[in-house]
Design a protein around this nucleic acid. Structure first.
Lengths: 261, 261
DNA sequence: CATATTCGTGAACAGCGTTTGCTAACGGTG
DNA sequence: CACCGTTAGCAAACGCTGTTCACGAATATG
């Protein structure tokens, strides 16, 4: 808020005063510690006192950096959305530009892989808001989530552009549904300005399925009876690919034993 | 554990001594209060001290009835599975016996309705285990959940029996997937002893989608941008019905404006 | 150098889960 | 009825939590 102080004998080069630098470093350390506690003990195990203790200071001191535990949790949640978006984007970029099919599959698998290797984070991001005060200000996390979403849906956008799958005629959709789909498309940020509602519906359906399998796996609502969820995920991935007009290719690592396709 | 005391001047009619009766009443009151707090303040707002306070006693007293807060939460979670199973079963029973299509649709809608009208409960049941100690004994809730699942999947079982939809040939499924599907079928309790894996896969796919839409709605991971999720749910329901060979009929209440179907 | 801002602390309040010893009531028996 | 064991419930205490406040000390600014 305050303009960068013109003072300072030291290099004000980075437009960052010495004070601001150490301040930001401390804030970063706080968030790193919080994140580590989240991973180690779950969201219930994140406490200001424990963080302060580990950093060699006292809890009230943290209030110079963060307005409270809720805000801290919201803050690291926003960071995690950013991180996940990067992971997906990197996976996407790791494939040849023109290989749309490969890029899609790789990105979706990257999403799942991040989810199952970051269960506490995923639970906070995609599970119910259980710990936070219902009146807490979560707009920053919401905003980051929206940015993640757009990164994600941009992938699908290519498919729409390439007209990979047959769209259901817009007239076949109930108007109430069409209205919701349009509002969704507008907010989520499709590059094509006027995507047909039918396309949005197919994509939404896919997103629901992806969300469903991954949540089920991370929240362990099936794997206590299924064990290895990967075949199930791959099966769903295959179904989704079919619906999207994407050529499915089995996972390389584990010997596929795939279908004749 | 102890055999019913042969004593008692009063009616031992119900095989329940006076002491046991008031004891069970108190336990019931504890669980009711906990449930109410869960609904009012969310899972984070359920505390032994607050429960005791409201009941006019002190927290340590509750330990005569419950070994701790975790066990209490697990206990009411099990009850909630029971309740949800009943609701679904009642919805099912409310339709004419032979109207399989109607029974399916009604039951699925009952599931969603319960979920969105019992968000805190649903979050605890189907969301990540965020509050409980990871080493807590949740077998009773798991068992209740399994019973709920079997109630639920029994519905689909009829469809398999009636051969409503074309099964994917078992040979088309990767062996790893087939193994998981079989283990799933065995545990979840299908009435048909030897359901083909292809059928189980279709049903699992549907369950994933149902879980996905409902979680998304309850956890509010889309409705901040969509508003009314009902059209989306109905759309998914319609898709699922199609995959299951079930004739979809639009929701009666709200004027459908439905497709030409 | 003097002054203003920031950082961090210690103490305190209110809440939490849980354990420990105690009292008082209750249930069944002689 | 009197006796006695079982049980219910309580007060106190320990250690944990978030948060507020007043204060001192270090730092940056004029």
């Amino acid at each position: 808020m305050t303009k960068p102080p013109v003072t300072s004998d030291h290099r004000t080069g980075g437009t960052l005063s010495r004070r601001e630098r150490v301040r930001e470093a401390t804030l970063a350390e706080i968030k790193e510690t919080a994140r580590r506690h989240l991973v180690e003990f779950g969201v219930a195990g994140v406490s200001l006192r424990a963080i302060a203790r580990e950093m060699g200071m006292t809890a009230p001191g943290l209030y110079r950096y963060v307005p409270g535990i809720d805000a801290l949790l919201v803050s690291i949640t926003a960071d995690m959305y950013e991180e996940l978006a990067d992971v997906v984007a990197e996976a996407d970029a790791s494939m040849p530009e023109e290989d749309t099919d490969g890029r899609i599959l790789t990105s979706l698998r990257a999403f799942r892989n991040w989810a199952i290797s970051h269960q506490p984070e995923f639970s906070v991001m995609f599970g119910p808001r259980t710990r936070l005060d219902p009146e807490a200000d979560i707009t920053s996390a919401l905003e980051a989530g929206r940015r993640f979403g757009s990164t994600f849906f941009t992938l699908f956008d290519r498919l729409v552009a390439e007209e990979r799958f047959a769209l259901p005629a817009d007239d076949d959709l109930p108007v109430a549904l069409r209205r919701e789909l349009r509002s969704f498309a507008d907010t989520v940020g499709f590059s094509s300005p006027n995507v047909p509602e039918g396309a949005v519906m197919v994509l939404t359906t896919c997103w629901v399925r992806l969300y469903g399998v991954v949540c089920m796996e991370v929240f362990q609502h099936l794997n206590f009876v299924v064990g290895d969820m990967e075949p199930l995920f791959e099966s769903e991935l295959r179904n989704m690919a079919t619906d999207l007009g994407v050529r499915y290719s089995p996972l390389e690592g584990a010997g596929g034993q795939a279908a004749k396709a």
